[in-house]
């Protein structure tokens, strides 16, 4: 990225610096700023933006980078959230959880619950991807939506875990050496997670695997002619994305102490897509900018008027119609 940055004209370099530097400073010092301003609520909002940015980044991997338009990604986020919440529920009620022949104890230990949650999301993504990737284009959009709806209705039917109303989680997951119930600690944890995820995606994009995925997006026929079968690459990409989405879900349920079927609805999947589109499809920073714009925009309009969707909906439409490359497009010059 540095090489690419240095090869750009000085004007563009300054533009990017002008955009990224304040953002990075703001993110690093947000807790202090809000502490000084005595606005702890906004720290929560900032954490929310980071967690949504993580979820949107996972979707961006398949959608922006791999060219697979999935309309059901909230399901993987939701699976991550539900697994953590359900394990915590069994721990606090001291009821063992029976899964067919296996009976396991609930847990609030992050070192146990989180890998299980991520694994569950990853496995679901692998199975759903294996079936969905047999189709393409519009049919792919619809089949991912259909699977997400199945999981949504399954969550609604879980009466034991609140059904339609969702379930609360008493207290956050316990990690050794980290007190996640402290909001500043949680914020930095979310920030570090997002940073690691972005670094991972950055490296992935430049690896051989990333080049193949990008090639499939640009011209599938040509990749086939080069002797590369797209399916296993796409499925791997989809599965990795599911795992990251599951991790975002883990953080989300810890942030809100609550999860409900609405968290895996089609509306939530659309929100994630909207964040990516607002920020810039396929760009590393796009999901973060998009999530920030989306959440702050909703919040800002919400304080002005109770009828905020009346303005937010058209605003989304205008952004999609006129800002073709999203917010990132304002800072970074056109791709060659």
């Amino acid at each position: 990225m540095l090489k690419k940055l240095l090869s750009l004209p000085i004007k563009h370099r300054l533009l990017i610096l002008a955009g990224v530097a304040p953002l990075a400073l703001l993110l690093a010092f947000a807790p202090f700023v809000f502490e000084v301003l005595e606005q702890p609520f906004y720290l929560r909002v900032a954490s929310r933006i980071l967690v949504f940015a993580l979820a949107a980044s996972s979707l961006n991997l398949v959608l922006g980078f791999g060219g697979m338009v999935s309309l059901g990604h909230a399901a993987f986020v939701g699976i991550g959230s539900y697994v953590v919440a359900i394990l915590a529920w069994h721990a606090s009620n001291e009821v063992p959880l029976s899964l067919g022949p296996f009976v396991i104890a609930g847990t609030t230990d992050g070192l146990v619950a989180w890998p299980v949650a991520i694994l569950a999301a990853m496995l679901s993504a692998c199975i759903i991807g294996a079936i969905s990737l047999r189709t393409s284009g519009l049919y792919f959009i619809m089949i991912t939506l259909a699977f997400a709806q199945m999981i949504y209705y399954y969550a609604v039917s879980l009466q034991q875990y609140g059904g339609d109303d969702g379930m609360r989680m008493r207290g956050r997951s316990i990690l050794p050496g980290l007190d996640l119930s402290n909001r500043t600690t949680f914020y930095y944890f979310a920030l570090a997670s997002l940073a690691l995820c972005l670094i991972f995606l950055f490296c992935l994009a430049r690896s051989r695997f990333g080049l193949v995925i990008s090639g499939i997006r640009q011209n599938e026929t040509r990749m086939r002619a080069l002797g590369i079968e797209p399916y296993p690459y796409q499925l791997t990409c989809f599965t990795i994305s599911g795992a990251i989405a599951g991790f975002a879900g883990v953080l989300m349920v810890n942030l809100d102490s609550f999860v409900s079927p609405a968290d895996l609805s089609m509306a939530r999947s659309s929100e994630l897509i909207a964040m990516i589109l607002i920020g810039g499809v396929g760009s590393l920073w796009g999901p973060l900018l998009g999530a920030g714009f989306y959440i702050l925009g909703q919040l800002g309009l919400g304080t002005l008027t109770t009828y905020w969707p009346l303005f937010f909906g058209p605003a989304l439409i205008v952004i999609v119609l006129f800002a073709r490359r999203g917010l990132v497009g304002l800072f970074v010059p056109g791709r060659s």
Binding site: V69, G313, I317
Partner: peptide, 23 residues
């Protein structure tokens, strides 16, 4: 435009029409 943009424009429209009906 692509399906992606169409999905989000219609998502914005759903938001708008739902709220309009509520108003």
């Amino acid at each position: 435009r692509g399906y992606l943009e169409q999905v989000i424009v219609s998502f914005g429209l759903i938001m708008f029409l739902d709220e309009l009906v509520r108003v």
